[in-house]
Amino acid sequence: MTTTFQPPSLFETFCTATFRVLLDCMARPGTIGQIPEPSMFTNIPTITIDQQPVIANRFALTSCLSLLDQETRFAQAANSSWIDPQSDINRWVQLRSNCRLSDAPNAQFVYLWDSASSALLHELNPGTLTFPEQSCTAFIAVPEINHTEPTWRLQGPGIDGYCDVGVHGVVADFVTHINATRAHFPLGIDIVCIDTHGKCLALPRTCQISLK
């Protein structure tokens, strides 16, 4: 049979592969997926926190970028404060995705550079009762996710009973901040945590988290 399609570009292949990981993780909270290496992205600008350069989690930033286009509004925060839309890192994301840069209450996607920035989750749009799907999705970079040393117990749709998962190196009130975003289902923020090795844990708003 004749095929009539262009072979997908590296970036398109990355977007599809990343989406399938996000799809699987979102449908089955507690599953740890592996984000593919974003090899087409080099020279991601660093940001400065306390006069020290900080490097982005390339897996977390680019998997968020893979869902952005001209219809989406994006913001990012580090060290508990929002990054200026005119900064290098925001311009870098905009140039590669064509997204619109926005303030926190209007953002549809945010990238949080660290778990400390989860204190800002309450500023994001949780949607409305009529349109809960208009809520924000947050990608959060965390140091490590594994199944071997569980710290959280997850329950909810997509989980057979319960699922234990370990999220390490995060601030003490991380879970408190996340749980606060989902106190009023169907309103809420959907969250994707990605560690430095590209391990991905999705926490849709239906997912209840308790500390072990």
Binding site: F5, Q6, P7, P8, E12, C15, T16, F19, L22, L23, M26, A27, S66, L67, L68, D69, Q70, E71, T72, Q108, P132, E133, S135, T137, G158, P186, G188, D190, P204, R205, T206
Partner: peptide
């Protein structure tokens, strides 16, 4: 690849992720 353009795919993908969360 997959007939529809990449931006159309992205829009469907974003809505699928929201649909799963709700």
């Amino acid at each position: 690849f997959g007939f529809i353009d990449e931006d159309s795919k992205r829009e469907v993908r974003r809505q699928i992720l929201k649909a799963i969360a709700l």
